[in-house]
């Protein structure tokens, strides 16, 4: 690891100020992703700003939303009684990610900011446009079993690795960020971006901005929500494909639906057309299959991830069946 300057900030303002005029400075909170990347020289910030003392840990209900501080720990959110009762999808998604120890360290903000686990991104001797713009995408013609099927570009086919974010995008969350000019609010779906020709940029956050909270509007999805994750072992592995499914049911009829996928794109992948197709329908396997078919439109496979075209709709159906209580 390279040497770096280390500073502590205890207010949002001081944190943001510490970033000014230093494009190679980074915030650090849990450090579970950044320290790993620094050890492998994938990221080499010359300055770290420790923001753990900034008071952003609270989870509070207010005016039709629940606001989760950016520094709330993943385990704290997953175990929070209000979250478990009113937003079980989020709790389930959190517990499907990483390990108990990592969830005790990782923050909500850090989870949102985590970087792809693409092997080519991680090995500094291999080409990767995200790590080193212009070096090429190693995965495009390489070993891309874990890679994206939606929204790819010729420059990057990496996936966003988070489980939590799949639930948050499904639940219409908003990311609240602070910068030198004050706060702004970014709908979760617009926070992460597709790689296009600039895969180095994971999201729309500016370098001198910091996430201060995530807000989720009140909803009626708490009775029928499920997070279904398929991975190469039973726990502690990144998703091949995961699906967050939440339904608002009136008897057997679906009033509202929320669907999002993980492990398929450079961002948590919201499936709005599929959601629409479910509204007003009876919750049956047949209906879910139709929704899954709609969801998969536009998917494109590479040499080693063609199985995701088949696995994807199956996981959507399974997630919906579980959410609807059909299993």
């Amino acid at each position: 690891m390279i040497q770096f300057q280390f500073e502590r900030a205890s207010t949002v303002k001081a944190s943001v100020n510490a970033m000014v005029n230093n494009g190679n400075a980074r915030f650090i909170a849990g450090g579970t992703n950044l320290v790993d990347l620094m050890k492998r020289n994938v990221m080499t910030p010359t300055k770290l700003v420790d923001i753990n003392a900034v008071p952003l840990k609270d989870i509070q209900q207010k005016n039709g939303v629940i606001s989760i501080g950016a520094l709330a720990l993943n385990s704290q959110v997953a175990d929070n009684k209000i979250i478990q009762e009113k937003y079980p999808l989020l709790s389930k998604a959190l517990n499907a990610g990483a390990s108990a120890q990592i969830r005790n360290m990782a923050t909500v903000g850090g989870n949102i900011m985590q970087r792809t686990r693409c092997s080519y991104f991680y090995d500094t001797t291999l080409p990767c446009n995200k790590r080193q713009p212009g070096s090429g995408c190693g995965a495009l013609d390489g070993l891309n079993r874990m890679h994206a099927i939606f929204g790819t570009s010729k420059d990057c086919i990496a996936v966003h690795p988070s489980d939590m974010c799949v639930a948050l995008v499904a639940l219409d969350a908003t990311v609240v960020v602070a910068g030198p000019k004050g706060e702004r609010r970014i709908p979760f779906e617009e926070f992460h971006r597709l790689p296009g020709s600039q895969p180095a940029k994971d999201n729309t956050l500016q370098n001198n901005e910091m996430i201060i909270s995530v807000e989720i509007p009140d909803n009626e999805f708490n009775k029928n929500a499920h997070y279904f994750k398929v991975r190469d072992r039973a726990s502690y592995a990144f998703a091949l494909i995961s699906v967050a499914a939440a339904l608002n049911m009136d008897g057997k009829v679906i009033k509202e639906a929320r669907l999002a996928m993980g492990g398929v794109a450079h961002k948590p992948w919201r499936l709005k057309e599929a959601e629409k197709s479910l509204v007003g329908k009876q919750a049956t396997e047949e209906v879910f299959k139709q929704a899954a078919e709609i969801a998969m439109q536009g998917a494109k496979a590479y040499k080693y991830n063609a199985f995701k075209l088949k696995l994807g709709p199956n996981v959507i159906v399974e997630a919906l069946k579980n959410a609807a209580g059909l299993v």
Partner: peptide
Amino acid sequence: RVLSCLSL
């Protein structure tokens, strides 16, 4: 419980 390898 935390991981000391990822803790500065």
